[in-house]
Simulated assay, not measured.
Amino acid sequence: MAGHNLTVDAGTTSVALDLPVLESAAGLTLVGADSTGEPFSEEFQVGFPITEDTDFTFEADPFASTGGTIEHSGNITLGLGEAEVTLGDFSIGFDAARVSETASGFFVADTLDDGLGLEVLFDVGAPGNVAADSEELTISEADLLLAPELAEALGSPDLAGADVGDTRVDATVTEPEPTTAKNVIIMIGDGMGWEIARAAAIQEAINQGHEGNTLSDFYTEGTGAGLSFQNLDGYAVATTSGTYIDGDKSNSALEGDTLERETGVSYQFSKVTREIEHLKYIPNQSKNK
């Protein structure tokens, strides 16, 4: 199963808060909880359903997070002195930077807008048991540790890392859909140059009733249109040989007027040849003197 990513699909995360510790250390009390989830056992006070927004992926053997978060619905309300704050729609993620001697790198974040203005509330301690396969993921015997962010907000930074409860994740797992192979078909029309393709396209356009007296009435650049292969996705014009004559980059077959020279002959050579041929037919004026 190594190297094979699996995705959490659904399930429940159960939470047990150590209320005496929270109250004595941080002055927090549990006012109430609102969740439709069923906790794993009576040892836990509340269960939060895992929602479809979850995109947490992992490798099963050995267990390792590969990305995403486990999203939940439901909330709890805590009392802080005379004030109350509601936290919920919790998100469990992994951050390697949060790994310590006691913290696993997993954390619990609050995604509701609340008076504390926090995100990360708890770090998750190293779990005592992880069972993962292609059907289920169970993370159990994991402590809830007060995150430095929450400890700072409570005015007691020394409480960071304090064990204030336990959590357990029981989730179903899905395997990713197999990747479907794609066939790539390349069609090469060899021997049909740009001018020939344009001539055929113009004839086809005329056959279809298009009228025109000059090339500009059809097209003078680009890949053109009118023939079936010119409408294919990814259609392009290419050459199977270089355009330089005799390896000289200053001597290109693309320079000058392609209609006034031999195929494969450079502009400079063609121009000189025409001038020589022209001189042959100039009368020798010296004989008339």
Rank of each mutant, 00 (worst) to 15 (best):
A151D: 10
E177I: 07
T214L: 05
M187K: 13
R168L: 15
A131V: 14
A160D: 10
A132C: 07
A162R: 10
R98E: 15
A160P: 11
T220C: 11
L150D: 01
S104E: 05
G222N: 02
L116I: 08
A131G: 05
E175I: 13
L215E: 14
L154R: 03
L159I: 05
G115H: 01
I139G: 03
F94S: 03
N183M: 13
E135R: 11
F218C: 08
F218W: 14
A126M: 00
D170F: 02
E221A: 14
T214F: 05
D110C: 01
D123V: 01
L145R: 01
A181I: 06
T174V: 15
E211F: 03
D123T: 00
G226T: 12
G105R: 05
L146W: 02
G88S: 10
L227D: 09
P127D: 01
G128Q: 05
V169D: 05
D158A: 14
S140D: 11
G155Q: 11
F90C: 06
T138W: 00
A126P: 00
L215C: 01
L137T: 04
L227V: 13
E152M: 11
A103S: 13
W194F: 07
T167P: 00
A205Q: 13
G193T: 11
A200R: 12
F90Q: 08
D158R: 13
V124Q: 00
E177T: 11
A162C: 03
T138H: 04
I188H: 09
D114M: 02
L154E: 08
D166N: 14
D143G: 01
G161C: 05
G224H: 04
V120D: 02
D166C: 04
V120F: 00
L112W: 00
D217K: 12
F218A: 08
I186P: 05
G115N: 04
T138C: 00
M192W: 12
Q208F: 05
A96C: 08
T172K: 13
A126D: 02
E177H: 05
M192G: 03
E135M: 08
S134A: 15
E149Q: 12
I185C: 09
L159C: 04
I185W: 13
G226K: 06
T172Q: 13
L150I: 03
G193Q: 10
T223I: 13
V120T: 11
P127V: 02
A151V: 09
L112C: 02
L150C: 02
Q208A: 15
D170I: 05
I202A: 03
F94W: 07
I186N: 15
F90K: 08
D143E: 07
R198W: 02
A97G: 12
L137R: 03
G189Y: 11
D95F: 04
G93L: 09
G155H: 11
R98Y: 12
A197G: 10
G125Y: 01
G125L: 01
I139L: 10
D143H: 00
